[in-house]
Simulated assay, not measured.
Amino acid sequence: MSRTSLAVSRRQLLGTAAGLAALSLAPRALRAATPVKVAAIYTVPVEQQWVGRIHDAAVAAAARGEIEYVYSESVSNSDYERVMREYCEAGHDLLLGEVFGVEDAARSVAMDYPDTAFLMGSSFKPDPQYPNFSVFDNYIQDASYLSGIIAGAMSKSGNIGMVGGYPIPEVNRLMHAFMAGAREMNPDIAFQVAFIGSWFDPPKAKETAFAQIEAGADLLYAERFGVSDAAQEKGILAIGNVIDTQKDYPETVVASALWHFEPTLAAALAKIADGSFAAEDYGVYSFMKEGGCSLAPLGTFEGKVPDEAMDLVAQREQEIRSGAYTVEIDDSEPKSS
């Protein structure tokens, strides 16, 4: 096992401010007779923004008494299957994680443990062969689109840099939505798109961002940690992704598209409680109309974004929530333009 093993980790006991804030996002407590035993396996540290949102939701559910929660972080792909099997053998009811690099191995584990529920971040769809293996992804294109509107209004050079981890669907769709929003304000805006080949390499992301700034970008889309640091050092603006980092970069991060994992986890726990858990795609629970994503408060940039952009943001958000407007989901690899 990783250093957290099967014991409750010190991080879990301390929790996080974001996890406590997430309490308001969750529905009423489940009526399960006992807390669901949940184990999570992460390939990166829980500080990483995507994994951090899953972790925060689980910490909050544990604080409410809905689950018992343990986790392992920084688990390599080559060790992932072993850790999964150890948690299954320990009798956990639900396994959480992200299996983008270990799809086949993860599904083979699910087949060997049919009485365990698996809810895994994945680029693939559920398969009837694995009836206890459900998938999710951060379909936060709605919030990404709204943040793009703000970016398009705030960029003076009409040149935006975008730094992502890998060009996989979960990243691609957010970038495309962001770009579509920016073009609402400036149809001729240009984008520099780069991928660093890592989910957690802030120095590399920072250096890539520096290169985009040198090439004329005056605003950066920070899909990875490290990008906002580059923007801050060079005195330009940035748009955040998945978590709200405005407090860390009060003069840099204008807005962020937030992911709320709480609805996804709540749906899975409800199905486990009533015995209906099956192979499903939980992606819809990340949609704005389901409470799975939102645009972060502007904080120090309140009143600094042009009224035209904010009016459009308000209009589109209302239309998205009502179903009158749908943000396109484009999973193809975005290109510089």
Rank of each mutant, 00 (worst) to 15 (best):
S256D: 04
I196L: 02
A190Y: 07
N159W: 11
Q12N: 14
G299A: 09
P45L: 07
G235L: 08
G19L: 09
R11F: 11
F178N: 12
L96I: 09
R82G: 10
M288I: 13
F133L: 11
S134P: 08
K289G: 01
F301I: 03
A278V: 13
P114C: 06
Q212K: 02
H55E: 07
E308P: 02
P131M: 10
G152Y: 01
G197Y: 02
A231K: 11
S147Q: 14
S144K: 04
S76I: 06
P126L: 08
I320Y: 02
R173Q: 12
A182H: 00
Y221L: 13
F136A: 09
E233G: 10
F261Y: 09
T252V: 05
Y42R: 08
V70C: 05
T43N: 12
E98F: 14
N138E: 11
F277D: 08
Q212Y: 06
Y113I: 04
Q212G: 02
F191W: 01
G275L: 13
G299R: 04
G97D: 07
I189M: 08
A177E: 03
F210S: 00
L20R: 15
G65N: 01
A190V: 10
Y285R: 05
A32G: 10
I160A: 03
G216V: 12
E103W: 11
S24G: 15
G161H: 07
E170S: 13
L13I: 15
F261E: 05
T116W: 10
G275W: 01
S276I: 08
A194Y: 06
S157P: 00
G292Y: 00
V242K: 07
D56T: 02
L219V: 03
D104F: 12
R183N: 03
L20K: 15
E98R: 13
D137F: 14
E89Q: 11
W259P: 00
P263W: 07
F178L: 15
W199F: 09
